[in-house]
Write a protein that binds this DNA or RNA. Structure first.
Lengths: 144, 144
DNA sequence: TTATATTAAGACAATTTTGTCCCAAAAATA
DNA sequence: TATTTTTGGGACAAAATTGTCTTAATATAA
């Protein structure tokens, strides 16, 4: 099951990387470092990071000692926000069969079934922040 | 969220269509009829139906009065089987971030979170059959 | 046996997603 | 001011998915 596009997955891994650096003096992290550490295409990551910057998740700075920085504390950046920004607002709207007319009034055959699945997934995404995701990274037992 | 590929979605809709025809004398249904009724590309549907035929979900017959037919009763064709056949066996195996090393021993940051989501989804797919999905079709309130 | 209706199978085209490359813009520093 | 380092943004290429078309194989029926 590929729930998320590769672009989103890369962004998530990259954000987890940034979040897991304990970076008290708030130094910018370069996309070059991230892409190298995580083996993600530099240019591809740059593009999706631009979107995150435009949407207030990251703060970017050009030039020497530039890079990106999380614009909010890690316990206030939630999976659901990232998904909305990167996958579009109808990520949780469309039904499993993607029929245009499907809705409460005229549900498709899988509508009610899917509504439950989607609902619980959405709740999980709403309550999961970067802070939750980086737990275990520092112990070295998990890799991004 | 596009959990399923278009090919799988088309197949599911088509199977729902076939299942919802009450067809006591077990006449073959042509792919032409299905594709026309559901506005699905005939050739594209044909290809994924071939896979379902090869995997024992459908029975096909060529020539006049030929077509396809469900090989099992509608309450014994489960979503999980269709997904395994059409999306591959690792549909429920891979983690959200798709990291190769991720597993119980060395879980990625989202592993445990995703395991729950995936688990409940899998359970739903396991217990949902075509019989469940066609409920409501006959009333005319739902469209495929 | 011939014509017709149907699925099977594969080549090919279009579209979408993913990935690469180049140059511009901005900022730091010498 | 010139040089270097970095993100921004767009053009382009590659790969994957989706969609179209043509022909073959098979079955029915006239």
């Amino acid at each position: 099951m590929r729930a998320l596009s590769k672009a989103t997955i890369y962004a998530l891994r990259a954000l987890i990387y940034v979040a897991s650096k304990d970076n008290k003096d708030q130094q910018y992290v370069t996309i070059g470092e991230i892409s190298e550490e995580l083996n993600i295409s530099f240019h591809f990551l740059t593009k999706t990071f631009q979107v995150l910057t435009q949407n207030g998740v990251l703060e970017s700075h050009r030039g020497p000692h530039g890079g990106v920085l999380l614009k909010k504390p890690i316990d206030r950046i939630f999976l659901i926000d990232l998904v909305h920004i990167l996958e579009g607002n109808d990520f949780f709207e469309k039904c499993l069969l993607g029929l245009p007319g499907c809705g409460e009034k005229e549900p498709c055959p899988v509508h009610n079934f899917w509504k439950n699945v989607k609902g619980s997934l959405e709740k999980e995404f709403e309550k999961t922040s970067l802070a939750h995701l980086i737990k275990g990274i520092s112990t070295g037992k998990m890799r991004i």
